[in-house]
Amino acid sequence: MNPLSFDPARWRPAPLLPAGTARPFWLFWLAAICCCVAGLAGIAGLEALRVGGAMAPRLSGRMTVSVSGTGLESADAAAARAAEIIGQVPGVASTRILDPAPIDPLAGVILSTWAGTGRGGPTRLISVACEASAKPDAATLASALRAQRMTAQIDDHGWWSGRLERTAWLSGLAVGLALLAAMAAIYGVGAAAARSGLAAQRGRIRIMYRMGASDGFLAGLIGGAVTGAVLSGAVVGAALAGGLAFWLLRGGDRVGSWSVPGLAGFGPWALLALLPVIGIATGLGALAARRAAIRAIRRFP
């Protein structure tokens, strides 16, 4: 061998662990899947809270009253009379008879079932806004109408508002649990990868240990390898989650011929939720790998 072929000044240290140590192929994919699930859960949770938060104030303090015409009174006249009666109920701030044009096509399909007006004449809807401090309930309005010999169906939106808030909270809880499960899986995967890496390189690790490598140094080698793989998997998984969420939520806004104010407008800022997912997943993977490695190395005398 030519002694001139090697120049110590240009020497670069070889990797302390062979390429691929503690980076089994499944580590990357499991990290990607877990982060995709966690990312989707995070975005779904944020969206649920956002939509719940946006819709609840629109619904609370509002009611919709449905009145139908009779043989003696047209629907428009009945609606005008009902609006006047309701407007005098204490706590009612304002009433507005909704324009029947956009509602009539839907009324036969949806509203008739709820209002029981499918068999009768045309229906008119009255939007009722209540004062937040002294909001009357549906029974009070019904009683006021009955006193004037009118019958109507009353939908208290406040009931929906409570349901919506509870559903949003439950959705948040469910996605939080999904997030926790995904992160627990990342922790388990990181520890398993570290143990498998240590088992594969036990001889090499022992050699370094006997040369004076500290537990922390050796655990850092294994932890570093695991961290790199988890980070790459997390980035890919989070990107996938971001793409899916963007497609689903933006696409969802355009579904149907009409949109509900407040549901529309998926906030792209929700994608920022993916950054902590990547950070937490990588941190957990690193922590798990380091702890598993330290536990195994401490069995050396």
Binding site: F6, P8, A9, W11, P13, A14, L16, P18, R204, I207, M208, M211, G212, A213, F217
Partner: peptide, 25 residues
């Protein structure tokens, strides 16, 4: 270590002792 050159093998104890490359090269 059979996958290490003679130079890398000798440098290994210095590396695991956290010595810097210029210190032991």
């Amino acid at each position: 270590l059979n996958d290490y050159s003679a130079f890398d093998n000798v440098a290994l104890p210095a590396r695991v002792s956290r010595r810097t490359t210029p210190d032991y090269r």
